[in-house]
Design a protein around this nucleic acid. Structure first.
Length: 818
RNA sequence: GCGGAUAUGGCGGAAUUGGCAGACGCGCUAGAUUCAGGUUCUAGUUCUCGCAAGGGAGUGGAGGUUCAAGUCCUCUUAUCCGCACCA
């Protein structure tokens, strides 16, 4: 197509952006952090993407926020580290491979190339020399290395366990990947429970520290909702474990309770249907009932299960009272929490109350309110602490005191102890799939599980593998991979064919950015000591419990291994809101995706960035609308035209117009600076820039060359973090050299930013009746006099008694009348 | 049920410290520019009574504190998110 000559004052985003894109691309050192710098460091990081194929505008928000911050911090004089990489292992590659007959490696690399092109086209300020790709052996060998270190320390272990199985994925899922009983990737596919030999990482060993550090290190620096989700997920409860004894054999049945003070009110013991003891206690009919409970629980979503119970015909002895109570099984008792067995105290627990009422089990109150009597016939459970009654030697004690003494007794008589239970469970990392990090162990018939020696790392994932998507790892059928010699005895052995959960890859990737090409170690610890913790981590809230808890765990393990010295990966976390289009989150399924390319062609990268930052504060969801994006385009056009047509203006002008324009400029610098430093409300920063340009349009005719000489370069610099292409173009057109983001951030002058006169609001009984323009610092009694005499105020106070006059200097006078 | 958040014009949002509610943008209305459409520029745009000047109401709802409340307190409703029979 013939090139149409453009009006030189038209903002041609394509021409400007392609010109600078070209220049920036040819400068590989543009965004490089200084190796050893005297300047303070700043590590800004956006969560690394999964290379799904191509970027859409929903992805861009995360990067636009991080990029604005990185550029601002550069301008503020920091040594900035701003890297990007690819979370490249995972199921979609494998599924795409099966569907299209392409190898996952090839598919993934092609996607990365495409998305990287889009990233560069957006002009994000990454140092691509630090790029990491988790599916490359140079990266995943260190996954394997960390795994071996954990194995040495007993933090990685293998056990046969009931695990979550997604029939659609054909693999095991971590607890964190099960959402409402369904697979996180297949929202309508019920997760099944299967019993398999699996590798686990012992995150529970760090449960307490993970929880404590939330209060001690993260509170106030990470979003509340993320911390609250993590607290919930770790789910600490402090209580007691107590053995009831089976009536005939004396075999202990251990229960967990947070309310041992109510134990004299226990009227039965209830086992989870999966509890190992049920096989022994139940007859055939009972076992069928247990199985039925398990199955019906699996087929229903959470929360809507009716309580179901079955008497085993057996009894247990309460170790405190010596009382004999029936043993039931109940569908609401969870095998995975506590000990899988509870004592039911219907008088003081709502669930037990419901269960025992249904099955006619006695209800025995043993707690009275501190200032009340024991309710003999409770209509509902009294769940608050109170005073313990009818409890032998403990009667009359407050609940807390009773718990302490009861624990002591249990311990001294060896039938129980104080205990803490966590909801979080160890992290199951085995996946029966191909496209992931091979787990570096060998199964030897003689020596059992033998770790691959460190010198043999990496265990390379073979390419060109026949993929089936069936329920076992395709690697199991690759003879050259699985058939190995045992490192210990040299005999024939079999390599582990499961691969690691991809969340292992992303649990420590941000460390690797600091030293991505190191072939001797995961990284040089000295470099980590300089850069860590991450000063600002930015990503979606959907990672609140998966990635963000795993990576905290990894950091603590790495610290204990001795390779790093920080306790937490990120000093500050920011979770941006989603991009909404037509009322829904942008996704391929909904068909409301706007591709980054399409957006750039139409509006330009700068407009896209500005609009995503302007439409809502960054932590809130934002609506993408084309009309809104056009508004941002208009704003950038106005800036462009103003700068271009005023760049070479005459010296003379109207001093008053200059004064007004310069005042607005300094107010704008102050506003934008404060937004960056305090609260990141870039929507108001951009609104301030729009106000500035509106003022400049109003004053344009009167502005002197001298004033413009100050205003125009500042305007280009202020625009730098939000619209880097346009800023760079204007900077050059104004005759300046060097990248905008390497220039010092403009400073503001409070005197210049100050208004000429104070605008005093005059109120009568809190209602605005007039206003007054007076010099700043006008004394209170003067203001009072002026206000009372004001012609706008007069009618409202005439004939009334002035009770009081409130004066807020330089701001307001409120006259109270009767 | 527990935990976290949110509620302001036709729409997205602003009001950072209790002090002029509605900045900025979208949309809309009018006018100018343009052959026309688009673009651009100018003016207007919370609701309501009024020709106007001007008045009244107004930040999910109900109370309260205060000279003054979107902002603080109590209660309440709705929506969103997370967890959910966690003993």
């Amino acid at each position: 197509m013939e090139e149409i000559p453009q009006d030189p004052t038209r903002y041609d985003h394509n021409q400007i952006e392609l010109k600078w894109h070209e220049r920036w691309n040819n400068d590989p050192n543009l965004y490089k952090a200084a190796a050893d710098s005297t300047r303070p460091k700043y590590y800004v990081l956006e969560m690394l993407p999964y290379p799904s194929g191509s970027l859409h505008i929903g992805h861009l928000r995360n990067y636009a926020i991080g990029d604005a911050l990185a550029r601002y911090m550069w301008m503020k004089g920091y040594n900035v580290l701003h890297p990007m990489g690819w979370d490249a292992f995972g199921l979609p590659a494998e599924n795409a491979a099966i569907k299209n007959g392409r190898q996952p490696y090839e598919w993934t690399k092609a996607n990365i190339a495409e998305m990287k092109r889009q990233h560069r086209r957006m002009g994000f300020s990454y140092d691509w020399d630090l790029e990491i790709t988790t599916c490359e052996p140079e990266y995943y060998r260190w996954n394997q290395w960390f795994f071996l270190k954990m194995l040495e320390r007993g933090l990685a272990y293998r056990k046969n366990a009931l695990v979550n199985w997604c029939p659609e994925c054909g693999t095991v899922l971590a607890n964190e990947q099960v959402v409402d009983g369904c697979c996180w990737r297949h929202e309508t596919t019920q997760v099944e429970q299967r019993s398999l030999e699996q590798w686990f990482l012992k995150i529970t060993a760090y449960a307490d520290e993970l929880l404590r550090a939330i209060d001690e290190k993260l509170e106030g620096h990470w979003p509340d909702r993320v911390l609250s989700m993590q607290r919930n997920w770790i789910g600490k409860s402090v209580g007691s474990e107590i053995d009831f004894k089976l009536e005939n054999t004396g075999e202990p049945i251990r229960v967990f309770t947070t309310r041992v003070d109510t134990i004299y009110g226990a009227t039965c013991v209830i086992l989870a249907p999966e509890h190992p003891l049920t096989a022994k206690l139940l007859d055939e009919a009972g076992r069928a009932r247990a199985k039925q409970m398990i199955d019906s629980r699996a087929s229903k979503g959470p929360g809507d299960i009716d309580k179901d119970g079955h008497f085993t015909g057996h009894y247990a002895i309460n170790p405190y009272s010596g009382e004999k109570v029936p043993i039931w099984i109940g569908n609401f008792v969870l095998m995975g929490y506590g000990t899988g067995a509870i004592m039911a105290v219907p008088a003081h627990d709502e669930r037990d109350f419901e269960f025992c009422t249904t099955y006619g089990i006695p209800i025995r109150p043993v707690i009275r309110p501190v200032n009340g009597a024991l309710d003999e016939n409770p209509k509902a459970a009294l769940t608050e602490d109170g005073v313990v009654e009818r409890s032998g030697e403990f009667s009359g004690l407050p609940s807390a005191e009773a718990r302490a003494r009861m624990n002591k007794k249990a311990e001294s008589e060896s039938f129980g102890k104080a205990a803490v239970t966590y909801r979080i469970k160890d992290w199951g990392i085995s996946r029966q799939r191909y496209w992931g990090t091979p787990i570096p162990v060998i199964h030897c018939p003689k020596d059992g599980v033998v770790p691959v020696p460190e010198k043999d790392l990496p265990v390379i994932l073979p390419v060109d593998v026949q993929l089936t998507g069936k329920g076992r790892s395709p690697l199991a059928d690759v003879a050259s991979f699985v058939n190995v010699k045992c490192p210990k005895c040299g005999g024939d052995a079999r390599r582990e064919s499961d691969t690691m959960d991809t969340f292992v890859d992303s649990s420590w990737y941000f460390y690797r950015y600091c030293d991505p090409k190191n072939s001797q170690a995961p990284f040089d610890s000295k470099k980590i000591a300089y850069w860590f913790p991450i000063d600002q981590y930015i990503g979606g809230v959907e990672h609140a419990i998966l990635h963000l808890i795993y990576s905290r765990f990894f950091t603590k393990v790495m610290r204990d291994i001795g390779v790093i010295s920080n306790d937490e990966p990120a000093a500050r976390l920011f979770t941006q809101g989603m991009v909404i289009k037509d009322g829904a989150k942008m996704s391929k399924n909904k068909g409301n995706v706007v591709s980054a390319d399409e957006m750039i062609d139409r509006f330009g990268a700068d407009t896209g960035r500005v609009f995503e930052l302007f439409a809502a504060p960054p932590e809130k969801d934002m609506d993408w609308t084309d009309a809104g994006a056009e508004g941002s385009y208009r704003f950038l056009s106005r800036v462009f035209r103003f700068v271009v047509r005023n760049a070479g203006r005459r010296p003379e002008g109207d001093p008053l117009a200059d004064r007004r324009a310069l005042r607005k400029l300094h107010q704008t610098i102050r506003k934008v600076t404060e937004d960056f430093d305090n609260r990141w409300h870039f929507n108001t920063s951009i609104a301030a820039l729009m106000e500035l340009i509106n003022t400049l349009y109003e004053e344009e005719a009167g502005l002197s060359g001298g004033a413009l000489h100050q205003i125009l370069p500042s305007l280009a610099l202020l625009l730098g973090p939000f619209a880097p292409y346009l800023a760079e173009e204007l900077w050059e057109q104004l005759g300046h050299q060097g990248p905008v983001f390497r220039q010092p951030w403009p400073t503001y002058d409070e005197t210049l930013a100050k208004e000429d006169a104070a605008d005093i609001v005059l109120q009568v009984n809190g209602k605005v009746r007039g206003r007054l323009s007076v010099p700043f610092g006008t004394p209170e009694d003067q203001l009072k006099k002026l206000a009372l005499a004001d012609p706008k105020v007069q009618p409202s106070i005439e004939g009334k008694q002035v009770v009081k006059v409130i004066v807020v200097p330089d701001k307001l006078v409120n006259i109270v009348v009767k």
